[in-house]
Simulated assay, not measured.
Amino acid sequence: MKLLTIGGLLVEIMRKNIDEPFTESHSFVGPFPSGDTPIFINEAAKLGNECTIIGTVGNDGFGDCIVNRLQESGVDTSVIKVKEGYTTGTAFVAYFGDGTRQFLYHWRHSAAGMITEEDIDAIDLTEFDWLHVTGITLAVNNHCKKAVERLIEKLPSTTTLSFDPNIRPEVLSAEEIRVLCEPIIKRSEYIFPSATEASMLTGLKDDVSGCKEWAKQGKTVILKNGEKGCIVFHKDEMLEIPSFKVEEVDPTGAGDTFCAGFVTAIGDGMSLYDAGRFANAAGALSVKNKGPMEGASTKKEVELFLKEQERTTTH
C-alpha cells in the first residue's frame, strides 16, 4: 500500500538507568530517532509499504538523525521541511521501577510544531491508499491542529483513515483531546486506543464498552493492551489476541510499531485475528532494543518470529 502520515519528527534522549528523575544529574543516552507517527511510518516502510511522512525538522544534527533513519528504512522524506531558525524537536524520557515513564517534550516551539496547512495543499492526496494520524499531533499547537484538519478535509473518500488517540497529558488535557478527536474519530475506519482512551473518549464506563460503541458505528477498533496483547472489535465480534513474551528493554514506540504491523497485515489481506497476531509480533520485537525505532523489523523477521512461536507452542 501507499501510506501517508503526519506528525512530530523528534529525537529521543533517555536516562541510561531506571529511577533517575529529571530533578537530579544522571547520564543520558541518545539521540534516537523518534515521534509517534515517525515510528509508525518507519516500521511500515520496513514491512514493505510505500511510505511518506509530512513533518518538519531543524537544520541541525538531530534533524539529520531522524531523516537519515527514515530514508534508510525506505520512507519518502521529500515533503519533510527544514525550518530555519527552529531546532529539531526533542523528547527526554526517564524510566522508573514501577513501569512508569516521564516525558519532557520540546515540541510546541520547535521545528516539529511548525507543520502548516500549506504543507497539506502541496501534496496530491489521491496517490495514497491509507492515512494514519494521532491525537498528539492535533494537540501540539494551532499550526498542527489546522494542518491535520486540512488533511482530513481534503482526504479522498477512497482513502482509509486510521486514528491512534495517543493521549499525552504532558501536552494537553484529556478533556481537550476529546473535543479535538471527535471529528477524526467520526471519519476513521480504524481506531487504535490504548488503555483508558476508549472509555475517556466515549464517556462510557470502561474501554470494552467504548470500543463496542465505536464498533456499532461501523468502525474496526483495536484495543492495545501492551503485554496482554490486543482485543479487536468489529461489528459484533470481539477477538482477544494474546501477546508474545520477550525480554523487554525499552517499551517506547511499541504501540506505534503495533499499528504499523496491523495496517500492513490488513493491506496484505489477512483476517482480523491474523492481523492482530502479526501486529503483536511486530510490537514484541520492537521492545527488545533501546530506542523507539531500534527494534523495527522487516516482514520476513516478523514472519520468522511467528513461526518460532508456533514451534515453541507446538512442543
Results as ranks from 00 to 15, higher is better:
Lys2Gln: 13
Gly8Asn: 12
Gly8Met: 04
Glu12Leu: 03
Met14Pro: 04
Ile18Asn: 12
Phe22Met: 08
Phe28Met: 11
Pro31Glu: 10
Asp36Thr: 14
Phe40Ile: 07
Asn49Met: 13
Cys51Ala: 14
Cys51Thr: 13
Ile53Arg: 01
Thr56Arg: 12
Gly61Thr: 08
Gly63Met: 03
Arg69Gln: 15
Gly74Phe: 01
Glu84Arg: 06
Glu84Phe: 02
Thr87Leu: 14
Thr87Ile: 10
Gly89Lys: 00
Ala91Phe: 02
Tyr95Phe: 15
Phe96Leu: 08
Trp107Gly: 00
Arg108His: 09
His109Asp: 15
Ala111Gly: 08
Met114Val: 02
Thr116Tyr: 06
Thr116Gln: 14
Glu117Val: 15
Ala122Ser: 15
Asp124Phe: 05
Leu125Gly: 10
Thr126Leu: 09
Thr134Cys: 14
Ile136Trp: 01
Thr137Arg: 00
Ala139His: 01
Asn141Gln: 08
Asn142Phe: 09
His143Val: 03
His143Arg: 09
Cys144Ile: 05
Lys145Val: 07
Ala147Gln: 01
Val148Lys: 00
Glu153Met: 11
Lys154Cys: 09
Lys154Pro: 06
Leu161Trp: 08
Phe163Tyr: 11
Pro169Phe: 08
Glu170Phe: 04
Val171Trp: 02
Ala174Met: 13
Val179Lys: 14
Val179Gly: 06
Lys186Ile: 07
Arg187Thr: 09
Arg187Lys: 14
Ser188Glu: 02
Glu189Asn: 11
Phe192Thr: 06
Thr196Tyr: 11
Ala198Asp: 07
Leu201Cys: 04
Lys216Asp: 15
Lys216Ile: 03
Gln217His: 11
Lys219Gln: 12
Lys224Ser: 05
Glu227Tyr: 05
Lys228Trp: 05
Gly229Asp: 06
Cys230His: 00
Met238Leu: 13
Glu240Asp: 15
Ile241Cys: 00
Ser243Cys: 05
Val246Leu: 09
Asp250Ile: 09
Thr252Pro: 12
Gly255Asn: 06
Gly255Glu: 07
Cys259Gly: 05
Ala260Met: 04
Ala265Glu: 12
Ala265Arg: 03
Met270Cys: 10
Tyr273Asn: 09
Tyr273Lys: 13
Asp274Val: 03
Gly276Asp: 02
Arg277Ile: 12
Ala279Met: 08
Glu294Ala: 11
Gly295Asn: 07
Lys299Ala: 13
Glu301Ser: 07
Glu303Thr: 10
Glu308His: 09
Glu310Cys: 04
Thr314Ile: 14
